[in-house]
Each structure stands twice: as C-alpha cells, then as structure tokens.
Simulated scan of single mutants.
Amino acid sequence: MTSRPGGRPKKAMTLMRIAGIPVRFRASWFLVSAAIVALFGPQVLRIFPELGALAYLVALGYAVLLMFSVLAHELAHALAARSFGWPATEIELNLWGGHTEFHAHRATPAKSLAVSLAGPAANLVIAGLGLYLSGALALTGVTALLVEVTVLVNFFVGVFNLLPGLPLDGGRIVESAVWAATGDQDRGMRAAGWAGRLVVLALLAGLAVLVVSGVREVSLVVVVVAVMVSFFIWQGASENVRVANARLSRRR
C-alpha cells in the first residue's frame, strides 16, 4: 500500500472513478478476495454456526472491507497530492494492496511527507471511528464482527505503512529527513531504500523468534503471508536504491 509519482500504462480494469480519478483493479486483487473468503469462511462459521453457507458471504464482507480500507488509504494520497497541485492519474488495487500515481511538480520534503502520511492517517481515523461506534452503539452479532474487522484492518494498514522504509509510506519520513538535511532527494531515496531493507530484516527476525521460541503459535498462513510481504518490500526497497544510485551516478 504505497504511493508513487509518475506513471506507466498498465493492464488493469477500470471499474469506477472517484473525484475524477480512475480506480483500476488488477486480476490479482480478485485472487486475494477469493483467498480471504476461503480462509475466513470456516472461521466465521465456527463463530456463528447458525449462518451455514452464509458464513462465506460474511467472509466476502471481509474482502469488501479490505477493499474500501485500501481505497480510502489511496484516495487520501490522491487528494493530498491534488491539494498541492499534483494531479493524480490513477489508483490501482492489486495483490499487495494498492498504489496511487501522481505527477509531483516542484516537490519539497514537507509536501512529499504530507502526501505520503495522508494514507495511513486516513486508516487510523477510520479505525478510531469504528472503535468509538462499536462502544457507543453496543453492537452485537455479525454487525459487531464486521465493525471489529474494520477497526483491525484499518489499524494494521495504517500502522504497517508507517514503518520507516520505502516502499512503505513511512519510508518518506526517512527520505524527507535526509532530503531536507542534504538538499538532495536522491540521497534521501537511497537512504529510505536501505531503511526498507532493514525493516524486512527486522520483520523476518521477529517472525523467526516467534516460530522458534514457541511463545505464541504462528500459523503457516501467517508465515507465508509475512514472507511474501517481506519479499515485496525488499524488491521495492532495492528498486528505490537502484534508481537513486543510477541518478546520483549520472550526476557525477
């Protein structure tokens, strides 16, 4: 769930437009939705056995809530970019969540940081509102479960994206700090890319400790997802380092 400037044509289905911005879905997004239904359908059925096959419809609600959470995240990026006069060209939802593409004109460290943090902020606001409503309305049953899922998903998406390393949004904190200190965005990008690699190593080390120590049972699904996400972050971080090094090399 990242944002990035610029853009290249991609093969994705445009299913809607929000504020004039095309929202495109890759086929991988629908695979993720199907996996969510398959994984969480039995879990919902155990909690509410009276639902029968409808439990899988509730699990589909999980996927829909994830879609809207990611969409809110990316839309916040797009609208923040627009406020600085940076036109957003698309929002895309895919296997790894999503990203927003926009053209950044006359970017500064502060503006870049503001646009990047808008996404996690939107998710944390939604999580806070969900938590408040859950307590204020004394919800029960399936409704309470879906609100709880909304809170957890948005909290996770918001906090995870604040980890300080590219391609996560929190990587812009590192990039902007180095950019402001050196006056060089490419040096900031390289530092944030290396920070992203360190984030991956920290995540994998934490996962290994949990698995080996046995302090808490970790399911195979969690391990597989964690490794896949780590691989994605490592690739994105390495690409940022490569691009930054290439730009710095050309300038020399």
Score class of each variant (00 low, 15 high):
7 G>T: 03
9 P>K: 14
14 T>D: 14
21 I>M: 05
22 P>Q: 10
23 V>Q: 07
23 V>H: 08
31 L>Q: 01
32 V>L: 11
32 V>Q: 07
35 A>Q: 11
36 I>W: 13
37 V>Q: 00
39 L>N: 09
40 F>Y: 04
41 G>Q: 01
42 P>L: 04
43 Q>I: 13
45 L>P: 06
50 E>C: 10
64 V>W: 14
73 H>F: 01
76 A>D: 00
80 A>I: 03
80 A>H: 02
80 A>E: 06
86 W>Y: 11
92 E>Q: 14
93 L>Q: 13
95 L>G: 14
96 W>D: 15
96 W>A: 12
96 W>H: 15
100 T>N: 00
107 A>D: 04
107 A>Q: 03
108 T>F: 06
112 S>N: 14
113 L>N: 03
122 A>M: 03
123 N>R: 01
128 G>Y: 05
130 G>W: 00
138 A>E: 09
140 T>F: 13
142 V>K: 05
143 T>R: 10
144 A>W: 12
147 V>P: 11
147 V>A: 12
147 V>T: 13
148 E>L: 14
153 V>L: 11
154 N>H: 00
157 V>W: 09
157 V>G: 07
158 G>N: 13
159 V>A: 04
162 L>F: 05
165 G>A: 01
166 L>H: 00
174 V>H: 06
177 A>Y: 11
178 V>N: 12
179 W>E: 03
182 T>I: 02
183 G>K: 06
186 D>W: 06
187 R>P: 12
189 M>I: 10
191 A>H: 01
196 G>T: 03
197 R>D: 13
198 L>G: 12
200 V>D: 08
201 L>E: 15
205 A>C: 09
205 A>R: 03
207 L>H: 03
214 G>T: 05
221 V>T: 14
222 V>G: 02
223 V>Q: 09
224 V>R: 01
234 W>C: 01
234 W>Q: 05
236 G>A: 02
239 E>W: 12
240 N>S: 09
240 N>K: 08
241 V>A: 04
243 V>S: 14
245 N>T: 15
